[in-house]
């Protein structure tokens, strides 16, 4: 399993990414236990705060079998009143919405970096739910509990890469 973490925003607008190959860690079992505690589909909505960080966290493949139909992105409450999705959880990026590290690279370079092609979650591509990554976007205030524990663990395990902003398209 791979864990990808991306931090964007902040006053400086810098993007940092971390990548940990859980299977290579001496305490891989503890990583798995922690990841399984994460409420991937229960990220509460929160309005964006000026100049605060935004966190994207992705585990690939998912730590447990996911029901893609259920997890397929109920829009967060913030969307209902036409506000931006300050927090959202999704099983996978869509073809038009790139993942946090489409152009990223592994911090603990093992040859399998974040820039490698990943499964798309389009219709008809859910035959093997275990392959579907789990992904969530959190406002900084939401980075608590097991989310925070996972990010702290990632940050103490590997150094970040500073990267250009991910830009699916420019006009």
């Amino acid at each position: 399993m791979d864990v990808f973490v991306s931090r964007s925003g902040g006053l400086a607008g810098l993007r940092l990414t971390w990548h940990v190959r859980v299977d290579d860690q001496p305490d891989a079992d503890e990583w798995i236990l922690l990841i399984e505690q994460i409420p991937w589909n229960e990220v509460p909505p929160a309005p964006p705060e000026t100049d605060r960080f935004t966190w994207d966290i992705r585990c690939e493949p998912a730590p447990f079998e996911t029901d893609v139909a259920d997890a397929a992105v109920a829009p967060p409450a913030a969307d209902v009143d036409a506000h931006p999705p300050a927090a959202s959880a999704s099983p996978a990026p869509t073809a038009s919405s790139a993942s946090p590290d489409d152009d990223g690279a592994a911090a603990d370079d093992g040859g399998d970096d974040a820039s490698e092609p990943r499964p798309q979650s389009g219709a008809g591509q859910h035959d093997d739910p275990l392959v579907e990554p789990q992904e969530a976007t959190l406002a900084e205030r939401q980075l608590t509990g097991p989310w925070r524990q996972l990010v702290d663990r990632v940050q103490t395990t590997t150094e970040p890469k500073r990267e250009a902003p991910r830009a699916p398209r420019a006009r």
Partner: peptide, 25 residues
């Protein structure tokens, strides 16, 4: 740190999901 990624012209406007849609960019 890399290179300052800010665009200076609309032709280089950055579409991104991160940073609340690239507000700092």
């Amino acid at each position: 740190l890399g290179r300052d990624p800010q665009p200076a012209h609309m032709r280089d406007y950055i579409e991104t999901r991160e940073d609340n849609g690239g507000v700092h960019l």
